[in-house]
Design a protein around this nucleic acid. Structure first.
Lengths: 167, 167
DNA sequence: CTAATCCCGACGGAATCCGTCGGAATTTGT
DNA sequence: ACAAATTCCGACGGATTCCGTCGGGATTAG
């Protein structure tokens, strides 16, 4: 009997993704006011600091944050929150966002499948990957810093789109 | 050093999802010609039969396939392939398709998060879930039975949409 | 010099994933 | 009646991944 919620469900972001995004949001809130230490973030968000230390390496390697060492050091965004797409953040944290090896953006990875060419379900995974990428790249870090009561949490392109906020 | 491909990537369907979908496709191909045994499918798709036996229970419980026992028995779809959305299949196989507990369709599950109400990143996970659901529910099993060379693998709503096939 | 902070590598318990195995129940064909 | 084919069911176990913890080194500010 599979549990009702097998950790989370079919498609799953790990705590890396979850904590990492929250860390980035926190950095966005302090953007322009100097670096923020992991201790502060860990305290404010109630997250294990040693784990954040491990996480943030990926973000630094991806060039999303810069670090300043020593006392009063910490991390800061390298770009304005409006310029950082959540797709970049999650790729950095969790790896290529493909639901299946055969659906990787990188053709080299996709090739390891073997069933390429005759597999008729591959287009489904591709479509999933595209939907995911489009969605994540359409949201910026700035969108996640606004309080939820705001009228338009995500800059709704046209009017008449209350779906995105009241899910 | 996280491996380049951590099993698959950020968002990941397990082999349950992969094998289960391939099983369903195989059933769709034989739809209307009596039940197909797992031995045949396992042989044709080169998948471990005992594992398929375990898998197919979820599909049966979800009412997607019916079974007939005894010699010459096997499994068959309960509906026409055109009527079976891949969202249903994957929910049955992998559980609720939410990337995060707080983004579950079921409000009871979503409530376990605690951060509800003030968490500003929750809308992102909701949006991901919606994109995923919309995508998966827009593809039917029939779409996956057609050979790939077909002009329109997924019934493209409007013309000028070659994106979906050539990814 | 001290405190704060980033940086780095290693380690380990827990959970999940990916099946395997053995056998019971049911149906068909001979 | 018997044998073969098949679904059905529950348990088990190795491998991998996840989720952190821990200890210490390097760097900077005061």
């Amino acid at each position: 009997m599979r549990t009702i919620f097998p950790t989370s469900g079919a498609v799953h972001f790990s705590t890396r993704g979850e904590y990492g995004v929250r860390l980035m949001v926190e950095l966005a809130r302090h953007h322009g006011h100097g670096p923020v230490s992991l201790a502060e973030i860990a305290d404010h968000e109630e997250l294990p600091r040693p784990y954040l230390e491990q996480l943030v390496v990926s973000l630094r390697d991806a060039g999303l944050v810069s670090s300043t060492r020593g006392a009063h050091g910490g991390y800061a965004l390298t770009r304005d929150p409006e310029e950082i797409r959540m797709g970049e953040v999650l790729r950095a944290l969790e790896g290529p966002l493909a639901p299946m090896v055969c659906a990787s953006e990188d053709p080299a990875h996709a090739a390891v499948c073997g069933r390429s060419g005759f597999c008729t379900v591959n287009p489904l995974w591709i479509k999933v990957r595209e939907a995911l990428a489009t969605t994540l790249d359409s949201v910026t870090l700035a969108d996640l810093t606004r309080p939820r009561e705001t009228a338009h949490p995500f800059h709704a392109g046209t009017a008449a789109d209350p779906v995105s906020l009241r899910a």
